[in-house]
Design a protein around this nucleic acid. Structure first.
Lengths: 194, 194
DNA sequence: CATATTTTGGACTGATCGATACAAAACTGG
DNA sequence: CCAGTTTTGTATCGATCAGTCCAAAATATG
């Protein structure tokens, strides 16, 4: 029909996501977004409407990648408890590799709380998906006898989710691998069958 | 000597702290700081030099209040494990009362990571003081037989610190009391003597 | 009461904010 | 190769950013 875009939309969102990840929403200017994506202002506003909308897209992109990666990761393990062990150690590995980037969702929760309804909806959706996934792992673990059956799967899921957030925060403030591993080890034992 | 200040410096810092707490550093304009404190621009810049400097003062104020309150709180309990139980339930109570404000230090870690050296120094100092406090509680609990002696006190401290951060994040994203209590209960059992 | 010192209010700075206007450029379908 | 459509670069918008300037106001000291 007309002139085609000279850039890959997905790739641009990925770059924008990285920028927001490092400096937050308010801390990332539209100019910085142009530089990060390599696009001009026109291209950005033409395809993403506004800074806020681009942030939503970045958040969606992040959440999607995350839940997909975690779903795949958790399927690799045999027993329920191993899934959680893997989740934590994978989180730590990621953080050590990326030198403490932390988590975009955690950062966004900290920056906005529940002030912005559109953002809150994204956070809630992502949290819900993770809790569902983790609860099903917990249920499995209770069936295979590796996870404490005295707890509600939903509670175990909340605990694990909170632990991952805690690890990502530790990492972002510069904690070392040893400290994170100690936390993870206590967390794993906390939900293991007695 | 000369004209005296018409305001209480501490009170002003407290108001500024509240503003930063809600909207973060980048999200709080100097204009908003004027409105929050009730001061004019001149008074703010005359006494606090810059937005950044005022933020440092606010962070110091927050950290000081926090460590004092927590030290006092932990002294109220009898046994080691009770201290941790109290710490968690007090955190939850605070969050429920304040309708999910979260924690300024957690928010600041999320917003800055370790990009700003002055901020990082504050975060490190506050983290260090909390870890020291928590580790001594853990040691005590090991002596009185209420806390798992197989763990290093420092590791238990990191775990508890991370748990509190996790709870504050949960609260900020809007989690309910029940979910937070479930997490806290698992965390307490995780470090209790077996 | 006069002088020195400080605070205060308000106007103002250049820079940057997010967003828009517009025309040249680049493509597709006919 | 032309008409129609979209993207792109550039210039620019008004608003707001953090921070400064300065004169009026308010106090302490002599």
């Amino acid at each position: 029909m007309a002139r085609p875009k000279e850039f890959d939309e997905r790739a641009a969102i990925g770059r924008a996501m990285d920028a927001f990840w490092v400096r937050g929403y308010e801390g990332t200017s539209t100019q910085a977004l142009c530089e990060a994506t390599g696009l001009g202002r026109s291209s950005i506003y033409n395809t993403f409407t506004s800074k806020h909308e681009l942030f939503m897209r970045a958040l969606d992109h992040y959440a999607e990648r995350g839940i997909v990666a975690r779903t795949a990761l958790l399927e690799e393990s045999e027993t329920g408890i191993e899934r959680f062990r893997t989740l934590f150690s994978y989180t730590i590995e990621e953080e050590v590799e990326h030198h403490g980037r932390g988590c975009l969702v955690v950062n966004t929760v900290a920056e906005f709380g529940d002030r912005d309804p559109e953002i809150k909806a994204r956070i809630d959706a992502d949290t819900g998906r993770h809790l569902t996934l983790l609860a099903s792992c917990a249920r499995e673990g209770q069936l295979d006898g590796t996870i404490d059956s005295a707890r509600e799967p939903g509670d175990i899921a909340e605990f694990a989710h909170s632990t991952v957030a805690g690890l990502r925060l530790m990492s972002r403030r510069g904690a070392g691998r040893a400290a994170m591993e100690a936390v993870a080890d206590i967390a794993v034992n906390a939900i293991a069958a007695k």
